[in-house]
């Protein structure tokens, strides 16, 4: 695919991203609008006897008296200037709050992703190479258990086993400095990684088994290439497309999984922020988070599609497929 074609492809996809974000923002906005309860009820929750004036003041401040369309238009006007308003709960600007919390979640997500891919790919290759042995069966069994265990169950189990019983890792806190943080976030990252790695194991194994049966692998071995080269440059590279697809899914899952893991391990990341904000009906915050998360997921997918191009020279994105 030509460089120009690639640029066009990316531009088209970015346009699609803008359309998608608009749709998502409108969807989230309407759902929150329709959900029972409103901001002033939450803000006044502790003071049931609040007078009408206070109530009205709050409604005015958050534009709650405007029509739905006006409210959305007001929000959208700010959003295009990357101003997502202020949190109802804390009064902090939404973007600042998200920025403050994102460091932890990014660390956790990347850590978990790396663990999931590392374990998933190596176990997947191992199980394909040793197919029909007890090692293979054990790995397949692990992948079934891993795929079916919910993140919070894995999390609680890990906490109990490694923090409480063995006391190898801390049970809470996010640590100071890189190494300390690394140590603190190991258990949450493992909890996040288990489900994803199970998926990667299965797809790697299936892809490798398929590739190892191909004529080009036989032909490579017949030319006396080393076992390592046959395994990596031939079998694994050809099995890479489904693995990368799984990688994108796993990375997206790190975001949704973060909500569960951060609550389980009491970590103040984006996931925890999202849950708090939804509970509080903190509409600007939820809306802002939804935008950020949607953008990240869409960009991950775009990145995956571009990655395909580098893996397989046969793939091109012609006009109309974007």
């Amino acid at each position: 695919m030509s460089r120009q074609g690639l640029v066009l492809f990316v531009l088209r996809r970015l346009l699609a991203l803008a359309i998608l974000l608009t749709t998502v923002s409108f969807g989230v906005f309407s759902l929150l609008y329709l959900a029972p309860g409103s901001a002033e009820q939450v803000l006044l929750a502790g003071r049931p006897a609040a007078d009408a004036e206070t109530r009205n003041e709050i409604r005015e401040r958050y534009n709650l008296n405007d029509s739905f369309a006006e409210q959305y238009a007001l929000w959208a006007k700010g959003a295009v200037r990357l101003d997502f308003g202020q949190s109802i709960r804390t009064g902090e600007p939404v973007l600042t709050a998200i920025k403050d919390r994102s460091g932890l979640t990014i660390f956790l997500g990347v850590y978990g992703f790396a663990l999931a891919m590392l374990a998933g790919v190596s176990l997947g290759i191992l199980s394909a190479v040793r197919s029909r042995t007890s090692a293979d069966r054990g790995i397949v069994m692990f992948s079934i258990v891993g795929a079916s265990a919910p993140v919070f169950v894995t999390g609680v189990f890990l906490l109990y086993a490694f923090a409480v019983l063995l006391d190898l890792f801390p049970a809470f806190g996010q640590g100071e400095g890189f190494l300390d943080r690394f140590w603190h976030l190991t258990l949450p990252a493992v909890a996040l990684a288990v489900g994803g790695s199970a998926l990667v194991v299965r797809l790697t194994r299936a892809g490798m088994l398929g590739a190892l049966e191909q004529d080009y692998v036989t032909f490579a071995r017949a030319r006396g290439l080393s076992a390592r080269r046959v395994l990596l440059a031939y079998a694994f590279r050809n099995a890479l497309i489904p693995v990368v697809t799984a990688g994108a899914l796993v990375l997206s899952f790190m975001l949704t999984g973060a909500a569960l893991v951060e609550v389980t391990f009491a970590l103040p990341g984006i996931g925890a922020l999202l849950i708090d904000s939804v509970n509080f009906k903190d509409l600007p915050m939820v809306q802002g988070l939804a935008m950020v998360l949607a953008t990240v997921v869409i960009l991950i997918n775009l990145l995956t599609d571009i990655l395909y191009l580098f893996i397989d020279p046969r793939i091109t994105y012609s006009e109309g497929t974007a």
């Binding site: 036989t218 032909f219 017949a222 006396g224 020279p313 046969r314």
Partner: peptide
């Protein structure tokens, strides 16, 4: 021995080479 003493080519040229 393979490749430098005894070589092999297979039937189907469409599947024998590494597509990547």
């Amino acid at each position: 021995v393979r490749g430098s003493e005894i070589g092999l080519i297979l039937q189907d040229p469409f599947t024998m080479l590494n597509p990547l």
